[in-house]
Nucleic acid binder design. Structure first.
Lengths: 201, 201
DNA sequence: GTGTTATCGTACCGATCGGTTCGATCTCTG
DNA sequence: CAGAGATCGAACCGATCGGTACGATAACAC
């Protein structure tokens, strides 16, 4: 593909590994974990089967590596979106859902890759990656809920997490609900307002 | 299995068809659409390949029939749970999430079968079935929102739909959030309270 | 130069896939 | 009794699956 891996040991093996992950990620996302064979994944990367198996051991190992990398990248992206909104927690919360909205509008959007993978292979390692992925999202939301002065930030953050997951599924699967992230954003802000500690006036 | 289909034309072909759907549904749900082969589906039903293919034409045809039946059954079940809660819309809303909670607690719970199917086979017919499934859920929630006197019942119902989808995904994939349906129920009721038409006191 | 390492391309493996075919068997209809 | 359907069980089909093996090649370290 774009940068075919040279024949010799010109590049760091780590570089080859990263290139494989990068090339294979969109194919697995678009076609589904079981919808594409190893041969085709090799073709998409421009890498031979032997190289792929030396780096990842198995198709499952490759999938796990892809999902872990994706989880980290998405988490960084969402946190950056929140922090770019300034110090106000309500602004950060709104920014999270705005980021989701722009993601949902991307061509080829197909739901959350990690959640989808856990749905397709309901066992190890996909379920573990999905659980830690949701943990990371929950951690970000909890920080915001705490700084927002919520009476019960843990509960509020979990409700926001449900909105995040729900609007991503609905955006993917229910054309009858356009702008799901916008609806979720409004709901999240309403919940925040209702959860503020009633401070003495 | 339990009631093996007799050799001759003893039973209505429709009866055989229904028996196949019933026997195959849990297997497809537990193992995933691509995780089980046609031979195994036949074994689970006690039916030969020829019979299965005469009734459904292909594995995809069988899957579609299974999903349609499941969607209708789930929809009836959820509506019955709402109506059993009495006339008060808030009670009905709470009952919907209570029903989800008991579903999530069932052993072998693995998320919504229809949503999962659409995730696994992101095309026809699964996406169409999923879209109409969410339509049905939205219709029920919209009725409740209207009777509850919401200022914007369409929007409120769509937010509830997001909570329904989200808590089902989280209940399946995030062990760190137990009782997701209870959290969603509380959020739904908060949104309802905030959305009531401010009537003159 | 020599050896090591990483790679490619291809051929190959056994297993399984979805799907078809066929003769035998059974029951209901007329 | 005779025919029509519906079914079973097993054999069979080509294709594809994940994974392995091998000889050739090219870049590095020494």
């Amino acid at each position: 593909m774009g940068v075919p891996v040279p024949k010799g040991s010109t590049l760091d093996p780590a570089r080859t590994r990263a290139a494989i992950i990068q090339a294979v990620t969109p194919v697995l996302y678009e076609r589904g974990l079981d919808g594409v064979g190893v041969a085709e994944l090799c073709a998409a990367t421009g890498v031979s089967k032997e190289t792929l198996y030396r780096h990842f051991g198995s198709k499952e190992g490759l999938i796990e590596a892809v999902l872990r990398e994706r989880s980290e990248r998405v988490t960084r992206w969402l946190r950056a979106a929140a922090e770019a909104a300034g110090p106000d927690p309500a602004d950060q919360l709104a920014a999270v859902f705005d980021a989701l909205a722009s993601w949902h509008a991307e061509p080829g959007f197909r739901g959350c890759a990690i959640v989808n993978a856990a749905t397709q292979h309901h066992g190890d390692p996909e379920m573990g990656v999905a659980a830690s992925h949701l943990d990371r999202r929950l951690a970000l939301l909890t920080e915001i809920a705490i700084r927002a002065g919520a009476a019960d930030p843990e509960t509020l953050a979990r409700q926001w997490l449900i909105l995040v997951s729900g609007c991503t599924t609905v955006a993917d699967q229910h054309p009858g609900t356009p702008h799901a992230a916008r609806l979720a954003r409004q709901a999240a802000l309403t919940l925040l307002q209702a959860a503020r500690v009633p401070s003495a006036p």
